[in-house]
């Protein structure tokens, strides 16, 4: 192995580590945060669509029922998140990975 090869291998490895470190410390958190936000918005959407699930009558539930066949994943995830969520603080605090 020539010196040049050794150097380039060292650099490649360093680059991978740095990228991994950057991803773990910065990017992933950011994307996770966005995904959480997306889930929260989706929960709001579901709640606005089906408030009668919580006993709140809605003038559009007749129309939103049409969406249900296409909301399988959302419905399941929504229910799970509704059960899991103990407090807003807990949900928002998840990003810190204590």
């Amino acid at each position: 192995m020539t010196l040049a090869e050794q150097i380039s291998e060292y650099r490649a490895r360093l680059e991978e580590w740095l990228r991994g470190l950057y991803h773990g410390m910065v990017t992933h958190h950011a994307y996770e945060l966005i995904e959480k936000e997306a889930e929260d918005t989706e929960d709001l959407f579901m709640l606005a669509c089906f408030p009668d699930a919580f006993g709140i009558p809605s003038p559009v539930s007749y129309y939103t029922a049409e969406l249900l066949p296409y909301l399988e994943d959302e419905f399941e995830a929504w229910e799970r998140r509704m059960w899991d969520r103990e407090s807003m603080l807990e949900r928002k605090g998840q990003q810190y990975h204590f």
């Binding site: 009668d52 009558p57 539930s61 029922a65 249900l68 399941e76």
Partner: peptide, 18 residues
């Protein structure tokens, strides 16, 4: 999931606004 969603659909059709 059908049963779960079914319940929601039935409910929507029994509201006074339906």
């Amino acid at each position: 999931m059908v049963n779960e969603i079914d319940r929601q659909i039935e409910m929507a059709h029994q509201t006074p606004g339906a």
